[in-house]
Structure formats: structure tokens, C-alpha cells
Design a protein around this nucleic acid. Structure first.
Length: 202
DNA sequence: CCTCTAACCTATTCATTAA
DNA sequence: TTAATGAATAGGTTAGAGG
């Protein structure tokens, strides 16, 4: 409540969205919820978003990160978490409700898809600014645009991998490593393949 | 410097919808 | 029933705010 999560807009070169700073109160609520349900459904996340005045997508990311960090590591926690059968008091739920409903599937129209695909061919890794612009343009939340790009990239990679396999008989592989060969390539068929592959280790 | 963690990524799986 | 694809997951990387 009363937290302004957005405000300034760092002009200039934005690629990522600016880092969200949660207040203690917000964190308290998030952590508390996490301890009870590390896998909240869409309804829960939306309610949380309203409660702490933060975008739902930030909450989704927060849960993802938290699970990765603490995961259901259970045991030896500072406190709480016993992952016991949980049903101390009358809360008969949790019997068969393992999974809460997820967000409804978004159905993109042909024209929306056309816009997305076109953008994808120009740049498969759009920054926050461009994603937001795109989102406004086709009338869907920015978070959906981001997911769309993720899925698209993954499937593109998968398809490419298959092509390699089919074009290359079994025992002979080894050329596959030539992924770094594609550099400039503004063609839609190739990925920059950099963006986060630059690894500098010693 | 170093730590912590939001933002982001890929790869895979789950789930819905159109054919 | 199946192919296509949106949503969720695990788990890893990048980068910004502080100590």
C-alpha cells in the first residue's frame, strides 16, 4: 500500500526495466504468502498485486526467483516451513486442489500476430521500451509480449536444432557447434546469439 | 571490491484451442 | 486426436543497489 513502484523513467538506453524496490511491508506480505503457497495461481498473484500495489508480472518474477533461491529447500530454515501435512485447523482444502488455475490463455488475432512476428524478425530480444510500445500497439499487457517472445525464441531454437539434425546424419555431428558463426546476419533466420553468451572468464 | 536479488534468459513441460 | 502455441516450471546469467 502506498508504494510507488514506478515513477521515473530512466531515459536513454533502456534495455531492461528498472529494478523494482520492494518495501519491507510488501516483502513481508510476499514472503508470508510464499511460505504458505510457493506456487500461487493467477488469482492469488492478481490479488497480491492489488494488495501491495505492484504489477502482477513483478510478483510472478518474484516467486520464480524465490523458488530458485530457496526453492522448496525445506529443512533448517530460520523458522517456519515444515511442509508438514498442513491442516492444523479446519482448512479441508488442499486435498485435491494442488494446482490453482493459471492465467487464461491469450488468443492473438491475426493482425496482432503479424505485428509481433514482424517485430521479432527485426529484433528477437526487444528491451522494455520496445516491448511496452508493442504492447500498447496491439493492446495486450507487456508481460504477455515478453512471454510471447520467450516462447517464440525457444521454438525457433528448437526448430533450428531439428534442421541441423536432419541435415546431418547421425555419427558425424560436430558441426553443430558452429553456432557462433552467425554474426551480422540481419536475416530473420538467424539469432544474434549474443546478448548473453559473452562469457568472460579469466 | 563483494553480496544480494530483480530482471532476464533457455529448455522443458503443462494445458488449451483449432484443425 | 493432434499440432500449434500460450503459460508455467526449473535452473542459470546479467546487472543494479548497497555494504
Amino acid at each position: 500500500v502506498a508504494g510507488d513502484t514506478s515513477s521515473h523513467k530512466m531515459v536513454g538506453t533502456n534495455h531492461r526495466r528498472s529494478r523494482t524496490k520492494f518495501t519491507e511491508d510488501q516483502l513481508k506480505i510476499l514472503i508470508n504468502t510464499f511460505n504458505q503457497k510457493p506456487y500461487p495461481g493467477y488469482a492469488t498473484k492478481r490479488k497480491l498485486a492489488l494488495e501491495i500495489n505492484t504489477e502482477e508480472s513483478r510478483i510472478q518474477i518474484w516467486f520464480q526467483n524465490r523458488r530458485a533461491r530457496f526453492g522448496l529447500q525445506k529443512r533448517s530454515g530460520p523458522e517456519t516451513l515444515e511442509s508438514s501435512q498442513t491442516h492444523g485447523q479446519g482448512q479441508p482444502v488442499t486435498e485435491f486442489q494442488s494446482r490453482e488455475a493459471r492465467r487464461c490463455r491469450t488468443i492473438y488475432s491475426t493482425s496482432q500476430l503479424h505485428t509481433l512476428i514482424e517485430a521479432f524478425m527485426k529484433n528477437p530480444y526487444p528491451g522494455i521500451d520496445y516491448r511496452e510500445q508493442l504492447a500498447k500497439e496491439i493492446g495486450v499487457p507487456e508481460s504477455r509480449v515478453q512471454i510471447w517472445f520467450q516462447n517464440r525464441r525457444s521454438r525457433f531454437h528448437l526448430q533450428r536444432k531439428r534442421e541441423l539434425v536432419s541435415s546431418e546424419p547421425e555419427d558425424q555431428g560436430k558441426i553443430s557447434e558452429g553456432l557462433q558463426g552467425a554474426e551480422d546476419t540481419q536475416n530473420g533466420t538467424n539469432f544474434p546469439s549474443d546478448s548473453h553468451s559473452s562469457r568472460a572468464r579469466t
